[in-house]
Design a protein around this nucleic acid. Structure first.
Length: 571
RNA sequence: UGGGGCGUCGACAAGCGGUAAGUCACCAGCCUUUGGAGCUGGCAUUCCCAGGUUCGAAUCCUGGCGCCCCAGCCA
């Protein structure tokens, strides 16, 4: 029944973001018009399995898979696993799970750069035979020295002019494991005076006696990314290789390899990577947050990882809508995280059922309501989606309201409960505060109120109006819950803006997680399952955390509702 | 003093020689049994600057200025 409704919401209530024109779509459309690649569009998403995917990767995933779909093409998933010392199967698995969660499918097109190790070796032999590659015995330090600087040309390696035969023999022996790590490399023979450092005889193979997550101990030499990447794209028949602007000055090298080899040349197009305010999106730094214990793991709800956002309660739709909203360009930019939160609320607003949850309970006794009486009141599940139906919620003489919803001495424009003032209880009656009860320290412990039976929700009233509507939970029927409130992980818009000698960890927000226990939620939530999403009326959107145990639900605040009162109050 | 990119509202971002889209944020109002949502209106006489071409320039030309990336046997 519930699934039924969700399907309807999916086909009918989905938010449709207009596709904005951008320079990459224009290039692709032009290529299709010219029948380049026979009009095919074939992209790929090429992650290195050395960490978890984050929202920045989602930009690339959504665009690569999205653009392929738009133009009737295909998108491959390929793991760029050329460095066995950093890559693990755990990451391969998480990456696939995250891409699927986002809603994309590579079907039978799952590849690994390691699938091409054999082919790459043949290509290398070919380049040696063409006099375009050589084995170099310089040490890493020496290679750096010989490379020159940004303003001065480099020097040619003394090994640059070895014979083809010698190069072939040496490469084969490197492959066979005859030499120790770091003793030799295979280099492309290009131009040590090139202004583009990538063209100064770049390393193609290094010796690494390491076990690879897939090829195990088969290889003792591993291709550098720059040597593997373009050829991998070529082998797969990729037409458009979309990547980070960081690789813009690597493009001449990729093209050079492909032209020397005489094979299919995909067109690489670079775009700016995503930056978000209050967020860090560097695998290295994210790893530090995890390893140094600033967060509880890669899927901590405060993390910008896809698994973190997932656990936090983000919907894949909201992330995809966000990616479309931010557009696609080359200029370095920082997107306001408020835009991400907007697309999240926009999506959750139409799909999350409204429920009542009191986070900081204050007991209220309705003195003129009969003791022992229980009414089952109608409550609509989602005013934005009538097909969501309604449920019954129990009302009784003793309830909890939010402590913040009462003020003994309220300021102007406070529309909630105060002595002598009348408010509506959502789905129930008007109540008026008659008496405030305090403990010895002066802390308010309980309110005594009266209700007006003639103001029952949904029934005709005398036309009397109140300014405020409060959420509540019947104390006898309430379920105890833990609620985790999250704030930004960093206190600065730019977490990397630090004083001398410090790093981004000095900007970590000490209050990014606040755990509330003893929260009172309506009884329908007793059966909520991990992943279920709700709007806690007047609070925000919450989802059930996997830490939930039988009878003890744990909720994550995904994002708060826009809070106009907080704004008014702050003025 | 090398090479490669990029500069349009507070933040993203369209615009492709015919006289500045849209979104977020912000502000004002309407509406509301969520101070939510929704609705209405406001928000760049100006496109890094300076010249030039043109009837007409954010778009073309010239010259400046500013910002980002590159010196891993990482990706």
């Amino acid at each position: 029944m519930k699934a039924d409704r969700k399907e309807k919401a999916d086909s009918g209530g989905n938010i449709d973001i207009a596709k904005s024109s951008n320079f990459i779509r224009e290039i692709i459309e032009e290529d299709i018009r010219n029948n380049k690649n026979d009009g095919r569009v074939h992209t790929r998403f090429p992650p290195e399995p050395n960490g978890y995917l984050h929202i920045g990767h989602a930009k690339s995933i959504c665009f690569n898979f999205g653009v392929a779909e738009e133009y009737g093409g295909l998108c491959n998933l390929r793991f760029d696993d050329t460095n066995p010392t950093k890559e693990e199967t755990e990451y391969v698995d998480s990456i696939m799970a995250d891409i699927r969660w986002l809603g994309y499918d590579w079907e039978d097109r799952l590849y690994y750069a390691s699938d091409y190790f054999g082919k790459l070796y043949e290509y290398a032999v070919d380049l040696i035979k063409k006099g375009k590659a050589y084995v170099c015995d310089l040490s890493a330090d020496e290679i750096r020295e010989y490379r020159g600087t940004l303003t001065e040309p480099g020097k040619e390696s003394p090994y640059r002019n070895r014979t083809v035969e010698e190069n072939l023999d040496l490469l084969e022996r490197m492959k066979n494991g005859e030499f120790p790590d770091g003793s030799r490399v295979l280099r492309a023979k290009i131009d040590m005076a090139a202004g583009n450092l990538n063209m100064r005889d770049p390393v193609m193979y290094r010796i690494l006696h390491a076990s690879h997550h897939r090829t195990k101990d088969e290889w003792c030499i591993y291709p550098m990314y720059d040597w593997a990447h373009g050829q991998s794209d070529s082998i797969e028949g990729i037409t458009h290789s979309l990547c980070d602007v960081a690789f813009e000055d690597h493009r001449p090298l990729y093209d050079w390899f492909l032209i020397q080899l005489g094979v299919h040349k995909p067109q690489q197009i670079e775009f700016a990577r995503l930056n978000l305010t209050y967020t860090i999106l560097s695998k290295r730094f994210l790893r530090r947050l995890v390893e140094e214990g600033y967060v509880k793991g890669w899927d901590d709800p405060r993390m910008p990882t896809l698994s973190g956002l997932h656990r936090r309660g983000y919907t894949p739709e909201s992330i995809r809508n966000f990616q479309e909203r931010i557009g696609m360009a080359k200029r370095a930019s920082v997107v306001d995280i408020a835009l991400l939160e907007h697309t999240l609320r926009e999506d959750l607003n139409i799909r999350a059922d409204r429920v009542m949850a009191v986070l900081n309970p204050l007991k209220v006794v309705i003195e003129n309501y009969p003791e022992g009486k229980i009414e089952k009141l109608d409550a609509i599940n989602n005013p934005e989606d009538v097909s969501a139906g309604s449920r019954k919620i129990p009302f009784s003489r003793e309830i909890y309201i939010e402590a913040d919803d009462f003020m003994e001495d309220p300021p102007k424009k406070f529309f909630r409960l105060s002595p002598g003032n009348e408010v509506r209880l959502k789905h129930a009656y008007f109540i008026k505060c008659e008496k405030v009860i305090k403990d010895n320290s002066g802390k308010i412990t309980e309110l005594r109120c009266s209700y007006d039976p003639a103001t029952k929700s949904g029934e005709a009233t005398d036309g009397r109006r109140v300014k405020g509507t409060l959420h509540w939970v019947s104390s006898e029927h309430a379920v105890d819950a833990e609620v985790r409130l999250y704030e930004y992980l960093f206190t600065k818009e730019d977490p990397n803006e630090v004083e001398g000698g410090k790093d981004f960890t000095s900007n970590i927000n000490p209050d990014s997680l606040k755990v509330l226990t003893g929260c009172k939620v309506e009884p329908s939530l007793a059966s909520a399952k991990p992943g279920d999403r709700f709007q806690f009326l007047r609070h925000g959107y919450f989802c059930v955390d996997p830490d939930t145990t039988e009878g003890k639900p744990v909720f994550n605040r995904t994002v708060g509702l826009r809070d106009t009162w907080a704004k008014v109050k702050g003025k």
